[in-house]
Simulated scan of single mutants.
Amino acid sequence: MVTIVESVGLPADVYSAKCATRQVLDHIAGKWTVLIVDVLRDGPMRYTELSRRIEGVSQKMLTQTLRGLETDGFVLRTVTPTIPPRVDYALTDLGRSLGEPIRALREWTETHINEIERARIEVAERKAAQGY
């Protein structure tokens, strides 16, 4: 089944390098996007709350990812004119619809991490035995 991208009238085909769906998939599959969308499922958060909650994300990557999520319509950025200004980030309806598959992916990863780690060890041992 071919879906038409309504805004430009092109077929939606994630396997085509020229299709906008590829860009969106690349964006939503990024680790920072996955973590930001998952944590925002709990409700709106300020930038500093997000930064504290998601260990290891740099200021640059958090800012860049939030901007991309806002551009794609997944996140709403709300500025409250106080001193200093208060900025909150929340999922839009579109972002909440993405949140469910991301939650499932996180839960799957947490459930299977020990199997994955065992597989990594086995592969490393095989490679070492074979002189890789």
Rank of each mutant, 00 (worst) to 15 (best):
T3R: 11
V5F: 04
V5Q: 00
S7R: 09
S7C: 13
L10P: 02
P11G: 09
P11N: 12
A12T: 02
A12H: 02
D13G: 00
D13S: 02
V14R: 00
V14Y: 00
S16G: 05
A17P: 04
K18C: 14
A20C: 13
Q23S: 11
Q23G: 07
V24M: 09
L25F: 04
D26N: 15
H27Y: 02
G30Q: 04
W32F: 07
T33R: 03
T33A: 07
V34M: 12
V34N: 07
V34C: 13
L35F: 03
D38S: 09
V39P: 02
V39Y: 12
L40I: 14
R41P: 09
P44F: 13
M45Y: 13
Y47Q: 11
T48Q: 11
E49T: 08
L50T: 04
L50D: 03
S51W: 15
S51R: 09
R52K: 07
I54V: 06
E55A: 11
V57W: 02
S58D: 14
S58A: 13
K60Q: 15
K60D: 14
T63K: 05
R67T: 06
R67P: 05
L69E: 02
E70T: 06
T71Q: 09
T71F: 06
G73R: 02
G73Q: 04
F74H: 11
F74R: 07
L76P: 00
R77Y: 05
T78D: 01
T80E: 05
P81R: 10
P84S: 12
R86Y: 11
D88M: 14
D88Y: 05
D88E: 15
D88W: 08
Y89R: 01
T92A: 06
L94C: 03
L94T: 01
G95Q: 06
G95L: 01
R96F: 10
L98R: 01
P101L: 10
I102L: 07
R103M: 10
R103F: 11
L105V: 04
R106H: 13
E107P: 07
H112G: 08
I113M: 12
I113E: 12
I113W: 15
N114P: 01
N114D: 00
N114Y: 08
N114Q: 13
E115S: 14
I116M: 10
E117I: 11
E117R: 10
I121F: 14
E122L: 10
A124D: 10
E125I: 05
R126A: 04
A128V: 15
A129V: 03
G131L: 08
